[in-house]
């Protein structure tokens, strides 16, 4: 991956990596350069950020909707453990 010019497939892979903050400095440089010239990948990269946001929101919503175990449920679980001790 020493080349500076990358394909759309490679560019969008870096864009995906970037969503997890794992693209290297040089990868980001190459991506930026590619995006200047390629509208399709630019659209992909912008939408990718939105996809990430939607997923983050989904994870957050899921975790805020969690209703704790009831004390009844808890004692059942603990009882099950105790029988195996």
């Amino acid at each position: 991956m020493s080349k500076f010019m990358i394909s759309c497939d490679e560019a969008t892979t870096i864009s995906d990596k970037n969503q997890y903050v794992e693209a290297t400095f040089w990868e980001r440089i190459r991506l930026g350069f590619h995006l200047m010239m390629c509208k399709s990948c630019r659209v992909y990269d912008e939408q990718n950020v939105i996809v990430t946001k939607i997923i983050d929101q989904k994870i957050k919503d899921n975790s805020s909707e969690v209703k704790d175990l009831t004390s009844n449920e808890k004692s059942v679980i603990q009882d099950n453990i105790d029988t195996k001790l």
Binding site: I59, N62, S63, V66, D68, L69, K74, I77, L85
Partner: peptide, 18 residues
């Protein structure tokens, strides 16, 4: 283990259900 549910039940359940 006799305190597992008290100590970690909520945490583990939350982790899973999310």
């Amino acid at each position: 283990p006799e305190k597992w549910v008290d100590l970690h039940g909520d945490y583990l359940f939350h982790y899973t259900h999310s």
